[in-house]
Design a protein around this nucleic acid. Structure first.
Lengths: 269, 269
DNA sequence: TAGTGGTCTAGACCACCAT
DNA sequence: TGGTGGTCTAGACCACTAT
């Protein structure tokens, strides 16, 4: 005697009743979640209760739940009872974040403004600055040699209300960074990073952003606290100056449940 | 006497030996994959062999493999032996695909050009055209009422070498589509979709693209044949005309293992 | 036909957490 | 302290696929 409503099932799914138990169970639970029988934030019944209700072994119930988890519908942090995942508002990062005027007016970094828009407190950490050989894809985009050139690698971690949100690794040709705070200091001062590039004669004029998505590595899962069933978005950003020269590459890795991108682009004729 | 090399393990990982077997096993297999002990495209040993080698039950070996699968490192299509996944070249979709000049010159849709660049054969299917009430987010972007207005909904499936690559759902205000091929025909003729908009007096002048990423729904997994451990990218695209009026919204859903985005953007001062 | 992955079961032990 | 999820095991049956 189940308590849920599967009366007029009309989801156009599979052969229907020939599914293996864990999948049938996952399907019904998914429907219940989508129909808000279980609401966002709500706890699911325990595995033992569910196993009983569906007439399967506890193992099997656990597997059904794991299916939903991998779809991002359910959140099983630690050993807590699984909850229906709540959809989160996304940070919407756009290209205006590079606007020179905006930067000069507010002196504030785009990440900070966007986080504050959500009433949260931004924090940016710069745990390391190194002089290294550039990775191949970076050298390529900067138009330098991966074997001969050096770059400064700046690692940045971005937080909203102390929750890790994204990582950004910035690579700067050594010729540009040498002798400046770009090569030495975590604190970029007024106008932030792009303010300093301008001091060096590189005013950001256009950008290239290459976007892709994938599942996180275990290190990223750990560091960014990415929940199960949530991908990351990679953005390889190249800053280009008034002479059409690339002067900086930043590789962002962002939790996809918190971040999105929002571009408004003029179409060249 | 294992055959693989875990001599000088120096991955800065966990408490090391206190991990549960399935996780330890997954870690070692992952290292082997990253170190190309198992090469891309190569078959992994069978679960029974692995279970033996690692001294665990077959179940447990299977779970370890499932972990790597969910990370996108391994491909277990159907019941075939799992293979180390090969990284695929991405279709790089950019904003120049909306260039009016390009369209007029080649008459070719941007998707087609990009697929042909990879030496593959593009195909676009339009299985349905309907007149409906717009979903809320579409109405919002078109600046119309979700309760009173109608739109034409055109569903498009994109293939490369007969492999499904992405889906695009285009919504067009009824006022614009009414009485034109936009509302009736799968075949858009020369200049494709945007050619027809131009016939109606809407020349694409700027676009807005909102990008996010998530795991696919079961329907998408099925329809797009998304392998396990691969996310999808959502792009909500809004076309804006010479009068700054939105005239079309297209919602793309793309397999993230095949598609990427590539924007070059002028920074307005 | 032999081997594979997919799946299920029943029972077990653990660490953790709220009461 | 009792219930939870996490995990492992050993054995089993199935459908499919290579040979």
């Amino acid at each position: 005697m189940t308590e849920h409503s599967h009366d007029a099932e009309e989801t156009g799914r599979e052969p229907a009743e020939k599914l293996p138990p864990r999948r049938r169970m996952a399907n019904e639970l998914r429907d219940d979640i989508n129909n808000e029988v279980y609401r966002p934030g709500e706890l699911l019944p325990s595995q033992r209760v569910l196993a009983d209700r569906y007439g399967v072994a506890r193992n099997t119930a656990g597997e059904a739940i794991k299916i939903l988890e991998s779809e991002g519908l359910i959140d099983s942090r630690d050993r807590a009872r699984p909850r229906v995942r709540e959809r989160r508002r996304l940070l919407r990062l756009g290209a205006e974040r590079y606007s020179n005027r905006l930067r000069e007016e507010t002196g504030k970094s785009p990440f900070r403004s966007e986080v504050e828009k959500q009433g949260k407190t931004p924090r940016v950490d710069c745990p390391s600055i190194e002089k290294i050989r550039p990775p191949g894809y970076v050298a390529e985009r900067l138009g330098i040699s991966a074997d001969e050139a050096f770059v400064v690698r700046r690692e940045n971690w971005y937080f909203a209300d102390e929750e890790p949100v994204q990582i950004g690794i910035t690579y700067i040709p050594w010729e540009i960074a040498e002798g400046t705070v770009l090569a030495t200091s975590a604190n970029m001062g007024k106008g932030s990073l792009y303010g300093r590039f301008e001091d060096q004669g590189h005013r950001i004029t256009s950008i290239r952003e290459e976007i892709s998505s994938r599942m996180p590595t275990p290190e990223e899962t750990e560091g960014l606290k990415v929940p199960a069933g949530v991908p990351v978005i990679d953005v390889v950003h190249t800053g280009i100056d008034q002479d059409e020269q690339p002067f900086e590459v930043t590789h962002f890795t962002m939790r996809a449940d918190i971040n999105g991108l929002d571009y408004r682009i003029r179409i060249e004729d």
